[in-house]
Design a protein around this nucleic acid. Structure first.
Lengths: 321, 321
DNA sequence: CGGGCATGCTAATACGTTTTAGCATTGACT
DNA sequence: AGTCAATGCTAAAACGTATTAGCATGCCCG
């Protein structure tokens, strides 16, 4: 920038003004502006983002801290988030929490060191001590997918209750009366809501809840839980899995004559031994909206906002007889 | 830092030295060091990464620019890369190129603006004009998964030739003599090498190449290509798909009595209508090693290095009769 | 002809670190 | 007493940008 200034015969401040495109606000003649711009182009000038970040106290980057990027749910969220971040001139840093509190902390440290301007966090429940700290520090963050009780922070989640009701409605509409449920630990808001949706759905049809088992989100435990559900009498004609891995476990356990409906989409469904109807979450939109909320909070701090996005029922046959 | 200095009654330079842990190099008494450290803790001092980056001309972050994070191959690479980056105190920025040159350019701009210290790039072949520019700019980058002809840049790739030979060996060992191949466009080094491996494998067994078709890495085109291969006379008893989507297309086209072997792993193989043996790439290692190479190049510039990692054959039955 | 005002620009500072060169003090030794 | 080295620290510059306040100049108007 100094070079440009010297060669264009103006001050460095002027160059800055022109390059920032503010020669409207500041009184700078077209001639000078043109000269400077041309000089800049000629010298192949690239502004130093490092200096700019430093001076503006902003890193222009956001962190997405989620459990497992390998999971198609999170890679979808990441993709949406990345696109939206890029649209706004931000960079997206990914961080794997692996659902481990200590690593979540590490991600948060990024924010506190100012290496990122804000965090999109998929909170690991349990003890939100460091979340309190984080909020106290006044740095922006939003929740995605899950929320934390008693923590009024902006969030973007799927409408889990509605989604699960759709699943139940679908099955009931196909004649099922006895519907089992393989759920996840209810210390996660998602699983709480899905269970609620399941119950509400059944109640709306004046049906009793079917057998219900809980397992951590992991296929083998899920399979065992599904076995318990399937072993219950009177026996079920359909089982719902409350998330991807729970559905996988259920599929592994369920005989062909039991219909399985899953929360979270499966891939390559046409190659599966049987079709599986699923509730699919708007994964990329979750990422996109989380970024929007976060950037909004960074640039115009305000009260927390909560977005609830609708999922979709994708019928793949297999729920009918 | 000024605060600490004032309150501890020392200069700000001293504080810096102590905080950087260099009171070994510089002659600073234990007493002062302790006092400063304690002050820092007490004031909850957090160094500003922004200032540090600025001053050191480094962003301590790397960019991973790949085609599609949603693809399990790339999300695996990203996970490995993220972990390794974190281990070294770097942050990983993701960028989706979507296999579009213009977006690749955008990722490269990140580097040139110094928002990242280096790029891990999965190059989109065609015209490497901007790659030349990039190399000319002297900024570090490495290739992952693919290489570009005549471009001697550090790279980490899977041993595609060996992988494909393993696939052929496996099939031949199971008695197959007529093996078809659904490959990808050979303007990608990966597909070139895999085709080479396929041919070498057959030649090693004194077999003639079977029918061969090329399709872009996309399931419908792949299915059609597979149909052509399957329609050839004399007919094949096995077909190899040269990557994930090509395998998926092949699976969709192939009747049950034709064995399909895939390059790239499939998920949930136990739920598929039939077992599929695959060549699985060391995805996380690709990411990890790429990061290592890149950081190494950043900190100790040297001649390009090329890593070739071995894939694994995962037999899932289904290749036998 | 002087006061006021618009125009076009500049000087200087700040941002928070790291780093280089060097200063003051003390004690040991000749 | 004077020299030398070691010890423990500090002053100051540098990194590249954004910003704030203000300075010249010329013109209009009364």
């Amino acid at each position: 920038m100094k070079d440009i200034a010297r060669r264009a015969g103006v001050s460095q401040a002027t160059v800055s003004h022109i390059l920032r495109g503010r020669h409207g606000d500041f009184r700078i003649s077209e001639g000078t502006a043109g000269r400077v711009l041309q000089m800049a182009a000629q010298l192949g000038y690239r502004p130093s983002a490092l200096a700019r970040n430093f001076q503006s106290h902003r890193a222009f980057s956001l962190c997405l801290a989620v459990g497992d990027l390998t999971d198609s749910f999170w890679s979808g969220v990441a993709t949406g988030a990345q696109q939206e971040a890029e649209r706004h001139g931000y960079t997206l840093v990914v961080s794997n929490t692996g659902e481990i509190e200590e690593k979540e902390r590490h991600a948060i440290d990024l924010l506190r060191e100012r290496r990122v301007d804000g965090i999109i966090l998929c909170p690991i429940q349990q003890k939100p001590a460091h979340l309190k700290e984080l909020r106290a520090s006044g740095r922006p963050f939003v929740f995605v997918d899950r929320t934390v009780d008693g923590f009024d922070v902006s969030s973007v989640v799927t409408d889990n209750i509605a989604g699960m009701r759709m699943a139940v409605d679908h099955l009931v509409g196909r004649g099922h009366r006895r519907i089992g449920y393989v759920g996840g630990p209810i210390d996660r808001s998602t699983f709480r809501d899905r269970l609620k949706g399941y119950r509400q759905g059944l109640a709306a049809h004046r049906l009793h809840p079917g057998p219900y088992a809980v397992a951590p989100s992991e296929p083998e435990a899920a399979r065992q839980a599904a076995m318990r559900v399937l072993g219950a009498r009177p026996s079920v004609t359909a089982v719902i899995g409350a998330n991807f891995w729970l559905t996988v476990g259920t599929l592994r356990a369920a005989p062909d004559d039991v219909v399985v409906v899953g929360f979270d989409d499966l891939v390559l469904t046409d190659l599966l031994r049987r079709p599986v109807t699923t509730i699919v979450q708007p994964v990329e939109a979750l990422g996109r909206e989380a970024v929007r909320l976060l950037i909004d909070d960074i640039t115009h701090p305000g009260p927390p906002r909560h977005l609830v996005l609708p999922p979709k029922l994708v019928v793949r046959g297999g729920a009918g007889e």
